[in-house]
């Protein structure tokens, strides 16, 4: 603040009661200004219609063993694979020390048969192939990202290529044997 003749004048009439009123008014005003900013900030949080679509419910009863389906969840593809016994065995047999991003298969699935993954390569965000029967599935029989050649195994873990991490597992829960809610 500038030193001016006016400030000097103010000092002469200084008085604690006066200051108390002034500073409490400042305090109340600041609280009001902060509160007024909140609606503007909150308006940029996800809106009700966006939140309403934030979870996806699916009926998996028609998915055959060895088959994969792709669902949309929060604008992203979600891979759901009903794994065969061989695939489960393969996923479980690997030693954790051999993995780039060590994680046990049992930490990545809720039911051995159902593998649920966010279908976005953790390298640079491409969609890996391997969902359809004829697709390239990579060296580990899971998924293969065509952009920079990342190979994922039957648990969606990164095994070879530039991707740093395993495919993400979204939050999900089964409401019964075949009904799943993602998100």
């Amino acid at each position: 603040m500038a030193t001016t003749s006016q400030d000097d004048k103010k000092d002469t009439v200084d008085d604690s009661k006066r200051d108390f009123l002034l500073y409490s008014t400042y305090a109340v005003g600041s609280v009001g200004a902060l509160a007024a900013a909140w609606p503007f900030i909150d308006s940029m949080n996800p809106s009700k219609d966006v939140l309403a679509l934030a979870s996806t419910e699916l009926d998996l009863s028609s998915v055959e063993e060895g088959q994969s389906i792709t669902a949309m969840w929060r604008g992203k593809p979600v891979f759901i694979r009903k794994r065969t016994a061989d695939e489960i065995k393969l996923a479980k047999s690997i030693k954790l020390s051999e993995l780039k991003d060590p994680q046990a298969d049992s930490d990545r699935v809720q039911k051995d048969q159902w593998l649920v993954l966010v279908g976005i390569c953790t390298h640079l965000g491409c969609i890996p192939s391997g969902q359809k029967g004829g697709d390239v599935k990579g060296d580990f029989n899971g998924w293969f990202c065509p952009c920079h050649g990342s190979h994922y195994d039957t648990s969606g873990r990164i095994r070879k290529g530039p991707a740093p991490k395993n495919l993400d597992v979204p939050p999900y829960r089964f409401t019964n044997e075949t009904n799943i809610i993602i998100g």
Binding site: W38, P39, F40, D42, S43, N45, S47, K48, V50
Partner: peptide, 9 residues
């Protein structure tokens, strides 16, 4: 209806 505080703004 859907935007947070949208009605207020």
């Amino acid at each position: 209806r859907d935007v947070n505080y949208g009605w207020l703004i």
